[in-house]
Nucleic acid binder design. Structure first.
Lengths: 151, 151
DNA sequence: TATCAACTGTTGTTATATCAACTATACGGA
DNA sequence: TCCGTATAGTTGATATAACAACAGTTGATA
């Protein structure tokens, strides 16, 4: 890693965007006196797509281990954004459902997400955006494949 | 935020890359039985550029508050990667210097960083990389400016 | 049916970083 | 010189998530 001009490097830029996004997400929820982490938010997003998933499914979607998901669900349940229900078909499972409060936040997040996106994409051409997304996705694939043997 | 195809969205991609980078950084240090966070790593990087900075400067560079930096320095000092020295010129300051161990890691990180970068950039054209970096930097600027009034 | 492996989820412990409140030092003007 | 204010750093309390060890459930098969 070239430490001269570190601010121009991918790790720095990714880190900055990560914290900026985290901050913006919290701004949406803080109006309701809720603090929420990126990880918690992502669980909500996957539930907005379709709830009633079990914790293992959420773990795979968010790429967390099941212990972490268990704790994340604890926190979201304490914030009354979702609830756990037993699965009659398989008593090992707990199915995770959104509460009304949890559902209500979806629209707010969609609206604010679109606003944020509009702000983020100001002065950037559609073509550059496409290239950027494609490039970042390719990087994820590359690094995932290179994960086992190489550092 | 459109939750259909969330995996194609910027927040998801940024989050994935954030954790992949975090994981790779730890792999470099874990050979020496050291675990290190992104935030801790970034402090090291800014010290590799030039050490002897005070904690306030590091706080500004890393965009953390001084309390967080204090704790991060605590941890890096405990890992013997750096040391705090009093500033004779201003007794409020503590100047942060790399230890030998802290300096030694720079080369290892540069080498591994270049490897990681080569892996990450596989199958991506130079032009697309330039566009991506420029775009992400523009997004940081946009979101920073939009931070005050808009969510 | 008895047993064992596979699977789902929880808990204890630990590491990390944040916020608010605090101490110590420096500096400038009355 | 004295006092108020700004600056640098620390500490207590808290929130979050990771890992390892654990407990309950299921299903296959001997």
């Amino acid at each position: 890693m070239n430490t001269t001009g570190f601010e121009m490097s991918l790790p720095y830029v990714i880190n900055r965007l990560y914290w900026i996004l985290h901050h913006r997400i919290n701004k949406i929820f803080s109006a309701s006196a809720i603090n929420i982490s990126m990880d918690q938010f992502f669980v909500l997003i996957f539930l907005w797509q379709k709830d009633g998933k079990n914790q293992q499914e959420l773990a795979e979607l968010t790429q967390k281990d099941k212990a972490s998901i268990s704790r994340i669900i604890d926190l979201l349940e304490k914030k009354q954004l979702l609830k756990r229900l037993p699965d009659p078909g398989d008593r090992r499972n707990k199915l995770v459902f959104l509460s009304e409060k949890g559902k209500d936040f979806q629209e707010k997040c969609v609206v604010n997400g679109m606003k944020s996106r509009a702000i983020a994409e100001k002065n950037i051409t559609k073509k550059d955006l496409q290239v950027t997304m494609k490039t970042l996705q390719q990087m994820i694939i590359n690094l995932k494949e290179g994960q086992v043997n190489e550092v």
